[in-house]
């Protein structure tokens, strides 16, 4: 197992290099002049513009720019934005915010999704199952933008249960955005769990467990649930990776200064170094949580063995 994890971690290095180059190339290919955009309406003297271009290597060809970027990376210098703010500082500023939002979202996703899915799956086609089916279909079909504004209006503005925006009230201010962010995945987890549990309820080994005279609770908790969790764990693991990449819409609606907002602003300003730094980090998270999922597989299912 240890060797397997080490090999997988080593494999992330070429993936990250490739990903960062692709992102670099895409930012390079964006139309427009970032220095002109930076200046806005104010006139910019050609001398200052040239100096800025030189500072950020904007005059160099793509490959030279990328090589210089990699060179700086070797001593952990991720570059700066156009206001000379280090990218590393931006990340360490924004990442905890997104991490908190992700944690809240995954909590809702796992707890509500799993519980709803398990009960729906145990009594398939029952009243609760149909309730879950209808509500999850509804949630999945509403765009997150609508859901975000709607919940902000109802729970934040009209009822006043949650702060309307911002993160000034600590963890409490993350609850509503977290729930909105989780909604789609939550519905998906519920459906996935429901199908998996319903399928396992008919498995031969569940029939055996009942024939052994085990109490109903043990049959469900021990012989149905654990086997049903495998696909759900896969999904949640991959979803953590995706959520850590930031939720641009949710962060924008609820005015949360997370990674998603940062990358959105950086793309608009064509701040190459910022975009590449953050997106490469996202790619890393995604790969890392997929690895965690693969390791968890072997824990949940002894038939899966690495090495």
């Amino acid at each position: 197992m240890g060797r397997y994890v080490a090999r997988r971690l080593l494999l992330t290095i070429p993936v990250l290099i490739g990903a960062s180059f692709l992102i670099f190339a895409m930012v390079y290919a964006l139309p427009g002049d970032p220095i002109r955009a930076l200046a806005g309406d104010r006139p910019l003297s050609p001398a200052v513009a040239a100096q800025l271009r030189a500072q950020f290597n904007l005059g160099d060809p793509l490959l030279v720019q990328y090589a210089k970027y990699l060179g700086n990376l070797t001593h952990l210098d991720l570059g700066t934005d156009f206001h000379n703010r280090p990218v590393l500082e931006i990340i360490s500023d924004r990442l905890p915010v997104t991490a908190k939002l992700t944690l809240v979202a995954v909590f809702f996703e796992a707890v509500i999704g799993l519980v709803a899915g398990v009960f729906a799956g145990i009594r398939r086609n029952g009243y609760f199952d149909n309730l879950v089916l209808v509500s999850t279909t509804l949630i999945i079909s509403i765009p997150i933008l609508v859901l975000a504004f709607l919940s902000q209006y109802i729970f934040g503005l009209k009822l006043g249960w949650f702060p309307i925006a911002g993160i000034t009230e600590g963890w409490y201010s993350y609850l509503l955005p977290g729930l909105v962010l989780a909604s789609g995945s939550l519905a998906y987890v519920a459906r996935l769990t429901r199908t998996s549990v319903a399928e396992n309820m008919r498995a031969d080994y569940v029939r055996t467990a009942r024939a052994k005279g085990l109490p109903h609770r043990t049959v469900i908790m021990r012989h149905t649930l654990r086997n049903s969790l495998i696909p759900v764990v896969t999904f949640i693991g991959a979803d953590i990776g995706a959520l850590l990449g930031g939720a641009i819409v949710t962060e924008a609606v609820f005015n949360i200064p997370g990674i998603g907002r940062a990358v959105f602003d950086a793309v608009r300003g064509q701040e190459g170094a910022v975009v590449v730094g953050i997106v490469t980090l996202m790619v890393f998270f995604f790969i890392f949580f997929n690895l965690v999922v693969d390791v968890l597989y072997a824990v949940l299912d002894p038939r899966i063995r690495y090495d």
Binding site: D204, Y205, R207, T208, R210, K212, G213, R222, N227, P302
Partner: peptide, 25 residues
């Protein structure tokens, strides 16, 4: 009924591979 299953009447099934839970020893 549950208390009879096992000590009173027990059953063995056709396909032991699917009748045993793959994730427990």
């Amino acid at each position: 009924q549950r208390q009879i299953r096992g000590p009173g009447i027990a059953m063995i099934f056709q396909d032991a591979l699917s009748a045993l839970n793959p994730v427990y020893s």
